[in-house]
Design a protein around this nucleic acid. Structure first.
Lengths: 142, 142
DNA sequence: GATTGAACCTCTAGTTGCTGGAGGATGTAG
DNA sequence: CTACATCCTCCAGCAACTAGAGGTTCAATC
C-alpha cells in the first residue's frame, strides 16, 4: 500500500498532479484509509508510470486517455495506438522544423549585434521589420 | 485612423488579442471615438507588428516587454537586447534537442508496430516500460 | 498513552497567452 | 433612415498543472 507521496516519488510526479489526474479521470479513485488518505497499489503505480512516460514523449492528456483505453482492452486493434503515435511524431517533426527556422533567425540577430546603443541594435531592428527575415515563421504558439 | 479590426488584419492578430495586450499593458491605450471605439495610428501599428514578430520568434510576453522598453529608450545599451535574444536562442536549442530525442523514440515505436492486437502493441509496450527507452527524456512540458 | 512533525486532506486561485460568447452600442453605406 | 458589420464590456474557459491556506491524520518516538 503506497501513499500518494511515495507514488509521486516513484514516478517523478507532484502530489497535486496525481490528484489532478484523478479529478479529470485519468487515474482511478484509489482506496482510502479510515482517516480518508489515499492508498495505491502496483496497478495504479503502473498506470501512473504509463501516463508520465507518455507525457514525457509529448502526448496530450487526451491522447493518453485514448492510449489507456486501448491498453485496457487487449482485443482492440494495434493500429489505433500506432495512429496516435504517428500523429504525435508528425507534430514533433513540425515543431522541430519551426524551431529550426527560429534558431536560424535568432542566430543571425545575435551575431550581428554590434554592442552599441539600443538605437543601433540589430536585434531590435530585425524585430521591428519583419521583411528582413530570411525564413518564414508564421504560426504562433509552439 | 485605424479601427481595431483593421489593425488586426494588418498584423494577423485577433481583435480580442489586441485588447488583451492593452489590458496587460503591452499596447498603450489608444484614442477613442465619441462613441467609445478604439482608433489607432501608425505608431501603434508598428508596435503591434513588433510584438507579433517577437511572438513568432517565441519570445514570451515578459521578454517582449523588456525589448519594448529597450526600444523605447535609444540610449540604453544594446547588449541587453542581445542578452534577451541569446536566452531565447538557448531555449530554442534546448527544445530542439529534446524534440530530437522524442522523435527518435517515437520513430522506433511506430516502426516496430506489428499491426496485430493492442495486447501485442509495441507502442503501448514502450509506454508501459520506460526502461526500454534508448534515450533520456526527463523534463515534461516542451 | 501522549506528543511531535511530516505528510496528508479539501478548496480556491493563479500561471501563460490567448479565445469565444453573450448582450448590447456604434459607425457607415446605400 | 435603415441595415448590418463591426465595435464595446464583461465573463468564462482552454491545457496542464502549481501554489497556498487552513486543517487533519499517521506513524514513530518517549
Amino acid at each position: 500500500m503506497l501513499t500518494i507521496g511515495t507514488l509521486g516519488k516513484k514516478t517523478g510526479t507532484k502530489v497535486q498532479t496525481i490528484r489532478y489526474y484523478e479529478e479529470i479521470g485519468l487515474m482511478p479513485q484509489p482506496g482510502r484509509t479510515a482517516g480518508g488518505q489515499r492508498r495505491y497499489d502496483e496497478t495504479q503505480l503502473d498506470r501512473l508510470s504509463f501516463v508520465r512516460h507518455a507525457r514525457q514523449l509529448g502526448f496530450s492528456l487526451d491522447a493518453i486517455r485514448e492510449l489507456l483505453d486501448l491498453s485496457d482492452d487487449p482485443n482492440r486493434p494495434c493500429h489505433e495506438a500506432d495512429a496516435i503515435a504517428r500523429r504525435q511524431l508528425i507534430q514533433v517533426e513540425q515543431r522541430m522544423a519551426r524551431l529550426e527556422a527560429l534558431q536560424k533567425e535568432l542566430k543571425r540577430m545575435v551575431h550581428e549585434c554590434s554592442g552599441g546603443k539600443s538605437s543601433d541594435c540589430r536585434v531590435l531592428e530585425v524585430l521591428r521589420d519583419h521583411s528582413e527575415c530570411l525564413t518564414e515563421h508564421e504560426e504562433i504558439g509552439a
